[in-house]
Write a protein that binds this DNA or RNA. Structure first.
Lengths: 342, 342
DNA sequence: TGGGTTTGATAAACCGGTATAGCTCCTGCA
DNA sequence: TGCAGGAGCTATACCGGTTTATCAAACCCA
């Protein structure tokens, strides 16, 4: 016997297919004795449900999707996604739901994928990352009636479910820490302003500046690449009144910035303090090791999976779950500013 | 009309379900005129096949799986997987086959996943990575009769299909380059000897040593972590006759090694040359930028997908495809050894 | 002109589950 | 004693495709 079906089990147990289905799904309709017997036989025959058959009958596929729209080149350096993925899977595995992952080049393709997934019934729901300002995916997913949860963007009313951490508070904690050390010229090398979280971080710096007495607190946007991170750093350090501290929106850019500082003979942390808004092994491999904001990305993913399953179970509700706040891990790249402040 | 089924199309076209199925799958049984008409109607109604229904009828799910058994912590720093994934997807997308990705902690769990996938008919085949010596997954997959392709391990007879690059030649090219620069003490900080590719690389170094007149060419194994990479480097550099060049089996370890060298006051490349057996943005971010072996990982993945699809189409055949050889990208971390050789 | 083959199509079975209507007993209660 | 009601189970339709057996009409060639 190759792979047993419930019909095989039914024959062995001397009952009907229906009874077997009831027993295996823990629903009423069979006596405890019969259920016990059927379960034992199913176990013996090492029966497992045929996913397609179940999907067809029950109109759910026990599978969720996740599309990452970034050029592959910039991916993978950041442990962010690997951790997020593991977290998502850990959240899904409890219900033994599988994950479809797709890496695409742009948002247009991403939306295409959602359409295809919806029309082919390939997933029960999706997880969104990298929420942008006026994100076109939101409306699309609503139109497709595909359950979804957004990672990292707290939605307003009528929005999709979401799981988010407080970027604003996190950025404030960094700037406040630097200000407490005595820094007054703090620069912010940001990511792309298309992303909502970038906007929130920039706003946080801007709002905190007067209160903390910062002389200058520019936020310069980049495309998140090491190249632009380096170029922006070079520009900042070439200024007459150069900053005494720089906050980078990613670990990769921070590392690139550190390289530029060394190349220009600017000592870290003596002349310049560096903070990365995102932690990883990268920041720890450096000399000096970088002070960085650590987020529990795994937990982030786990919660996203949980929320998605809830939304799939009851699409009517909108859940907005806030996760643990990130914490600043202070290492060797931050110190009080040099005395001879320009 | 929510989602049209072939029955809807059949009605609109005034034909039977079977005819529609034939037409949509490009198989004989309908006239060209009818086929044309059916296709147009399907297009108009924007019909897409219901994946579960198709899977149930045709007993193939148009989905392949890939399990990565590594602790999430060590994943993601290496762009290797991100590139590999993109490549695999690009190879699959042509046939619009989807990919199930799973990150697990160990091989035992990985095998569990294969069993589940096989019994639930969730995938048509799988892609294996990180082949080990006497890999238990091979026999398991054969027993499950699950089509598979191994990435990076060329199998012997009776083995699974595979896609591989020549690790031996690659390692030789590195060692020969260093020898040509004048190095005679070359150390090799290897990965874990459990992996087949590690073994092949170690063997390559050992075999080349006499021919190239190397005085000493130890291969020291590690667990691929930055910690062990650093520790091993520290040990090597503390020796009386320390090596003038070190080859690292991964970019992360090479970066960690560079850190140790700097910390110990050993100048790179003045006193020590460093080569990474694997390229990434990491190696380019360093100062000095690291000489590294570049592999076309994307292409690697693409070919793996291609081969897997062929194996799925005809499970009888065993394909062993060799991909393009890696090339050495020389950067700033390699130079002739110092004069005062111990 | 007639028998055999090919072409174009249909109806129905089938894949392996789930959902539901309905049947048979058994129990409880008036 | 009779009947309502529920527990336990069966039979069957159904999900949306694919596949096969069957068949009528057209076509072919002697």
């Amino acid at each position: 016997m190759v792979r047993p079906t419930i019909a095989d089990i039914a024959i062995r147990a001397g009952v009907s297919k229906g009874a077997v289905s009831f027993a295996l799904n823990g629903r009423p309709g069979v006596s405890d004795a019969t259920r016990e017997r059927i379960l034992k036989i199913a176990e013996q025959m090492s029966w497992r449900p045929h996913s397609a058959a179940r999907a067809l009958g029950a109109s759910r596929v026990d599978s969720v999707g996740m599309v990452i729209a970034r050029p592959a080149r910039t991916l993978g350096v950041e442990p962010f996604f690997a951790h997020l993925l593991s977290g998502v899977q850990s959240g899904l595995s409890a219900e033994s739901i599988s994950l479809q992952l797709l890496i695409v080049e742009d948002t247009a393709t991403e939306i295409e994928v959602y359409r295809r997934w919806a029309s082919e019934h390939r997933v029960d729901g999706v997880i969104l990352v990298d929420l942008t300002v006026k994100d076109p995916r939101i409306d699309e997913l609503k139109a497709l009636e595909l359950p979804a949860v957004v990672i990292g963007g707290r939605g307003g009313k009528g929005a999709l479910a979401s799981v988010w951490a407080d970027d604003r508070d996190a950025m404030l904690s960094i700037v406040e820490y630097l200000a407490a050390l005595g820094h007054r010229r703090i620069a912010h090398v940001a990511g792309t302003p298309l992303f909502q979280h970038t906007v929130r971080r920039i706003r946080a710096v801007r709002d905190a500046a007067p209160r903390l007495g910062l002389v200058d607190a520019p936020s310069l946007t980049t495309d998140f690449s090491d190249a632009e991170g380096a170029a922006t750093t070079r520009k900042l350090l070439s200024q007459a009144n150069r900053p005494t501290a720089i906050v980078y929106d990613s670990d990769v850019m921070a590392v690139a910035g550190l390289g530029v500082a060394m190349e220009m003979g600017v000592s870290v942390p003596g002349d310049l303090s560096i903070v990365a808004f995102d932690d990883s092994i990268l920041t720890q491999l450096m000399h000096p090791a970088l002070t960085a904001l650590s987020r529990d990305t795994f937990e982030f993913g786990r919660q996203a999976a949980e929320v998605l399953l809830e939304v799939i179970a009851d699409p009517a509700q909108t859940i907005n779950r806030r996760t643990a706040d990130p914490v600043l891990t202070v290492r060797e790249s931050t110190a009080p500013p040099p005395r001879q402040v320009g």
